[in-house]
Structures are given as C-alpha cells and as structure tokens.
Computed example of a mutant assay.
Amino acid sequence: MRILLWHVHGSWTTAFVQGHHEYVVPVLPDRSPDGRGRARSWDWPASVVERTPAQLRDEDVDVVVVQQPHELAELCEAWTGRRPGRDLPTIYLEHNAPQGRIADLRHPAADRRDLTIAHVTSFNDLFWDCGTTRTRTIQHGIVDPGHRYTGVLPRAGVVINEARRRGRVTGTDLLPRFARAGVPIDLFGMDAARLGGVEDLAQSQLHDALARRRCYLHPVRWTSLGLSLIEAMHLGMPVVALATTEVPEAVPAQAGTVSTRFDALARAARALLDDPDAARAAGDAARAFALERFGLHRFLTDWDDLLEEVVADAHRAGLRAR
C-alpha cells in the first residue's frame, strides 16, 4: 500500500513507517512544518520518500493519513487535486487530548461519514466528540530501544519538551516541589537547559542518560500519552506518574506508582531512590508490560487492519485511488 502522510510527530511516525508499505511525505524547500520531509533526527527506512506539492499531483497513493485540520480542509486537495474522503480514502489521526470545556470538545472531523478518526488512546476517544464519524483506537507502539536500565544515579529522570513554555500542562511547576520533597530531578528535553536541564541529545544518547537514573517521573497533567513515558518503560525504568488522562491504563501497579496525590508520588519516588532492588524489579515489570501493550508488532498489525478496512470500504463505495 502507498500511504500519504505529513511529517508531524517524529516519534510516532518513526514507528509507523517501520511497516511493509511505501510512505510518501510532503517536502517544501525550507522544510517548514507543512513540508518537513524525511526525518533528520530519527532513523527512517528507504520506503519513506519525499515529494513536493507539484509532484503529489501525479503521485499514486492508496490512502492518506491526515493529522491536522488544515491538512484535511486545505492541503490534501490543494496538493493532490483529490478531496480527502471523497476522492481519496482518508484516516484522520488524532494525536492530542481535547482542550476546553467538556461540553465543547467537538472534533474538527466530526460528522464525516466518508472518513475514520484514529485515536491514540481510549481516553481521547472517550473525550472527543466525533459525532457520527467512525472512530478507532490504536494504542501507541514504539521501536524497542532495548533494556538499558542501570539506575546507578539515585535521581529521578524527567523528559519534557518546551518545559517552561508549557508550564502547568506538563507539570513543570511540580518539579521544584518534588525537589523540596527530597526527590532530586534531572530534566531532559527541548529547551530543558533554560531550567537547568539537559537538551540536544540524540535519541540513543537520551535513552542511555535516562536509564542511568533510578526512576522515571511523569509529572504531566494533561497530554494524550507521552511517548517518553512509554520509552522509559521499555528501557526498564520504574515509573512515578500523575494519574491523569491515559496514564492509569498505561502503567500497571507493579511498575511503580500512579496517583493524583502529590505526597504519595513523592513518597514513592523517595522509596525507589532508596531501594535499588525494588526499583529494578518495578522497572522489569514496566518493561514486560510495555513490550506487550506498546510493542511495535501489535501497533503495525492494528494499523494494517485499519488501513485495509478503510481502503476496502472506499472501494465498495465506488471510490478509486489514483
């Protein structure tokens, strides 16, 4: 199958393009957000090819995966000459948890009988109002970085991109509070240096550095489900996390502590820092769970099933990809 998709979420796309399909990603001369092309920070296979908007007019694709409202409403038709859902089988991949009042969480692709919305968590599927649009939930999957945990540093590792700008959303304000509660923290991520953390590490370097910390702290209040959390579990790290959005479903009890009580989280983190054996046991449980729930094979199989279903339904309805 030949799949058109924009390079929006590098980590997610890295897993998606590990399948057996061909993947077409738009590219612009300046590699701006609507045309990033192939990733430069992740390892993508040769089956991912770049095409300019002009080239997309004559490109044979079987299905498009859109990820942003303007891709659905403007870019896809403008660049391919085909209307998503009407001239081209279409899946709207929704990465994010909705924002705003609970009664007003209407999805931009709601009430579209000609496409399918794919959510990355059950929480998102529950909270987004998609109207009559068919929805599916395909849990995250990642390329296994391998068991790297050593936990030699009695500190908590945290990964937050743009921690200062995102503030309360990512729980950045909680980090000094954890430190005052006796939980030393090392922050990693884009712009982390502004808060005394570490940034500009390649993914493999980040994994190695993170795995040296005794536990992984996930202070995020509102996000879909951070891939950094799933990666930490794959590394074999025990987890201390806020019980918000999808986290209670993603972290089993034996892998660490999930709670909305700050005192319980701080106490659990201190206990892991003080007990390397308990930390390693919890990390082993986290890895075993992550390999089953968020393994790459399951992820790609789920996506193959959805892609085949969407294309087959479109063909039965009389739509033919060019």
Rank of each mutant, 00 (worst) to 15 (best):
G85M: 09
G85T: 03
D87A: 15
L88G: 06
P89C: 10
T90W: 09
T90H: 08
T90F: 06
I91A: 09
L93K: 12
E94F: 14
E94C: 15
G100Q: 10
G100T: 07
G100P: 03
L105K: 12
L105A: 13
P108Q: 05
A109M: 04
D111Y: 02
R112K: 11
D114L: 10
D114K: 06
D114M: 09
A118M: 12
T121A: 00
S122Q: 13
N124F: 02
N124D: 14
W128I: 04
W128C: 01
C130W: 05
T133K: 04
T135R: 11
R136M: 08
R136Q: 10
T137F: 01
H140M: 00
V143Q: 04
V143Y: 01
D144H: 04
P145I: 05
H147M: 11
H147F: 09
G151H: 05
L153I: 10
L153W: 10
G157V: 06
V158N: 03
V158Q: 05
V158I: 07
A163N: 06
A163T: 06
R165L: 12
R165A: 14
R166N: 11
G167H: 08
R168D: 14
V169Y: 12
V169T: 13
T170W: 05
D173S: 10
L175E: 04
L175W: 05
P176W: 07
P176V: 05
R177T: 15
F178R: 11
A179K: 12
A181P: 10
I185Y: 01
D186I: 08
D186P: 03
L187N: 02
G189L: 02
G189I: 02
M190L: 14
D191H: 11
R194T: 14
L195R: 04
G197C: 03
V198D: 01
L201R: 00
L201T: 00
L201V: 00
A202C: 13
A202G: 15
A202P: 10
Q203E: 13
Q203L: 13
S204Q: 15
S204M: 13
L206C: 01
H207K: 10
D208S: 12
D208M: 08
A209E: 05
A209H: 04
L210D: 00
A211P: 00
R213L: 15
H218G: 05
V220G: 15
T223V: 09
G226Y: 12
S228F: 03
